[in-house]
Design a protein around this nucleic acid. Sequence first.
DNA 1: TTATCCATGTAAGAAGTTACATGATTGA
DNA 2: TCAATCATGTAACTTCTTACATGGATAA
Lengths: 196, 196
Amino acid sequence: MDVRTLCLSVLTMGDASGYEIKKRLEDHFRYFYDASFGSIYPALNRMQKDGFVTCTHEAQNGRPDKKVYRLTPGGRLELMRQLRQAPAEDRLRSEFLVQMMFADLLPVSDVAASVDQRLASCRNDLADLEKLDCPDLSPGKRFVIGYGKAILTAAMRYMEENRHLVESEALLAQVKADRGEDEEAPEAAAPARSAR
Amino acid sequence: MDVRTLCLSVLTMGDASGYEIKKRLEDHFRYFYDASFGSIYPALNRMQKDGFVTCTHEAQNGRPDKKVYRLTPGGRLELMRQLRQAPAEDRLRSEFLVQMMFADLLPVSDVAASVDQRLASCRNDLADLEKLDCPDLSPGKRFVIGYGKAILTAAMRYMEENRHLVESEALLAQVKADRGEDEEAPEAAAPARSAR
DNA sequence: TTATCCATGTAAGAAGTTACATGATTGA
DNA sequence: TCAATCATGTAACTTCTTACATGGATAA
């Protein structure tokens, strides 16, 4: 999904300037997309050339003109074309999970702090979604908000119930013993070569 | 998280060639990271120069030499340095959710097909995680696998219970009526301008 | 016979981010 | 007084992906 399609999507919610588009993206899309000014402004200019949006200038006091963009029928068609394409697989990027995967290489206090932070972050997102959800939203938007809530709730619950796995000195010590640490040089072990 | 750290992580599971690293990444990390040969090979060469890995050449019949990389103590230290940094926020990229958000712009059959596909994809991932999970894994790896299972299960459950929201002709028709379609030109409505 | 696996690497290109440039207003 | 908000835009930079180059072995 490129920035152009994202801008078209946002413009279905009403006319907006580049600046306002960024804000809407932050408010409503940040859970699964974002874009910087450096990509939004060029995208808008290009789409104007392509006839997907029109632009009206509003004079401002002491600031650059506000350029308000509006979706054209052609732009709405283009959005539908893009949206109808089979969606690419979801992709998650999580440094947190990599950290958890190698928790046995790190101090327990660091791991615990990361879990706490992740939990707090989920709580915040959940509260924001709660605020976003209101009955006059389209069924699609409510579906997505509900989806987010379900995932966040499950993640929080899992972390609370299973954090002991990555925070137990005893369990982690076991791993180190199995690797032969505290006995020989670190590289002496690990003879395994094949991946599977 | 850059490709270099990812390679270092993989090498803690045992010495490997660039090709094998890619495979391990696909098998164990694909849920939250991936990397192409075009990024792995340069990363490995750079890390050799930096002293984070050593390399032994194995002659092959009719193929380029197999270059087997091994983590050095310095490399292990570098990995720990990287891993100890506070993880960046998780980021999800989901064309599926954008599609659902604007389900009212699409034919119901398309939406239903997307939900079916997403459900199938979750089922596959869940089965793969099930296979991956075995008792001799480190607690960190089991924590991550469990986390994945919890999220996938919650997502599937939510979609099954709520897909009617984006697949009901009646609900979607209501949205169109509210927007004033089937009455006037599509651009006549939507006077709203401000985002909040 | 055709595709996939094995195996490494380079070069070109895509897409985005960050930093810079400019500057008034408003709230803490 | 200092930071944030509003407002647009360009240029340099980073990072990764895709395609290309090479080619034997093996499985369907």
